[in-house]
Every structure is written in C-alpha cells, then in structure tokens.
Amino acid sequence: MNHAASKNLNLTLKIWRQAGPKQAGGLKTYQVSGISTDMSFLEMLDVLNEQLIASGEEPVAFDHDCREGICGTCGVVINGQAHGPDSGTTTCQLHMRRFKDGDTIVIEPWLAKAFPIVRDLIVDRSAFDRIIQAGGFVSVNTGNAPEANTTLVPHHVQQDAMSAAACIGCGACVASCKNASAMLFVSAKVSHLASIPQGQGERSKRVLNMVATMDAEHFGNCTNTGECEAACPAKINLTNIAQLNREYLKASLFSKE
C-alpha cells in the first residue's frame, strides 16, 4: 500500500434531487472538498450529507446496506455509468482514487419504468422481488443441512451455477440497458437453479412464471447490446440470457405447463 499516494480531492457533484415519487426532480450542484482518495464513493456521499445537515439542508437519500459489494442495495448511475467507471464493482466498492481533483461527477438514480423513484437516488426495486416470488419454491428437505455427498454435483456444474448465483439483484442491468430489460437478472436466477439437481422439479414452471412476471412488470425486451453484462458488478455473463431463452423455449415446447 502506497500511502503517499493518498490525496485529497475537491469535487463538484451534480446530484439528482427529487422530493418524492410524484414530484419533479432535477440535478443540483454541490461542492465537496478534502475528500480522501481512500474513501469509498458512499463515504464521499456521507461527507456531503454531513455538510448538508450542518447547513440545515435535506441530506441526499441513497440506498446502501453492506457496503462490501454483496447485498446489492447500493447502486447509482455515476457519470452515465451504472455503479461508475469500474467493471465488476458496486457503487459501495468504488473508491475515490478513481477520480481526479477538480472533477465534476454527475450522480443519477437507476431510471426505468419498472423502478419508480422513491426519493433522490432511491428507487423502488420491488419488481425484482415479485419476479423472484413468481419463481416459487424448490423441492428440498428443510431441517438439518443434508449430508454433502448425498447429492453429487460435478465441479463444472457447480461453477456454472455459482457464477449465475453471484447476481446480487442490484438492478444495474436494467439501469444500463437502453430498453430497461431485466433479462440478465432473470437469466441469472433461472440459470442458477436450472443448473443444479435441486432446481429440477420446478424447472419449467419457474422459467415460465418468472418470464411472465418480468413481462407484466413492464421491463423492456433484450436486444443483445451487452450493456448489462458490462455494468454488472457480479459479472453475470450474457450466456445466461441465451440459457434463459433455451429454458423458456424448452419449457414451452416440452413441459405440461
């Protein structure tokens, strides 16, 4: 660690402020100074909010929870890019060393019809929850964890399932897609369970119901631009969308549903 590299930044922030779901919003400009390059992006917003509270202004509302890149709660569009300029990185894991002294940073919330703005940078992502609910259950025993070797899963299958399961449901795919399509999210969930033995019983029903809910929630259509994959902090691959397409076709043609 080269601590000598740590510097302080003076920044101009242009942040989307919107008092409520129905109110009109707009960009508002703020100045922050003395931001350490070792800070995370959210810590920088914390500094701004301290400053706003001290001067009697409403702090900027933004979502966050774990601040270690695993919960998927955080997420804003930074200079036009979901989760900012780094690939495979959530907003909370983005560090201020990525910026230069004197930079102007534009911060906007996820925008999509299916993700209505609640306030400032916070959007309502419950459409994702409804898609997950539509996916239903998997038929596995509850109670004690089963003995690990009763269900054998080959390593490469585990790998595929794990890389799909890495999706943290943050919504960056929808935010970055010009069509506000949720296919990367849905495909990660579908591929994950379709890959492993535990997900087989409800495999067809799951994909049909999740896609039906995705469509009903007014997400857009995928046009294979790949913006979602590039913006995804969990690096979910586009091959999952191809798998989703296959699963859906298979379920339509060969299942009883």
Partner: peptide, 24 residues
C-alpha cells in the same frame, strides 16, 4: 422498450470497453 425506459439519463456512457456507438 421505449416505454420501459421512459426516462433518460442526463448523462449516459457505455461500460462496454471501447464502445462509443455500436450497430446494436
């Protein structure tokens, strides 16, 4: 798709490496 997007960002940049404007 246009309806699903509905709102547009003040600033939008691709995160696909090297993409400025694509046929897609």
């Amino acid at each position: 798709n246009y309806r699903a997007r509905r709102e547009f960002y003040v600033l939008k940049q691709s995160k696909v490496p090297g993409r400025i404007i694509g046929a897609n």
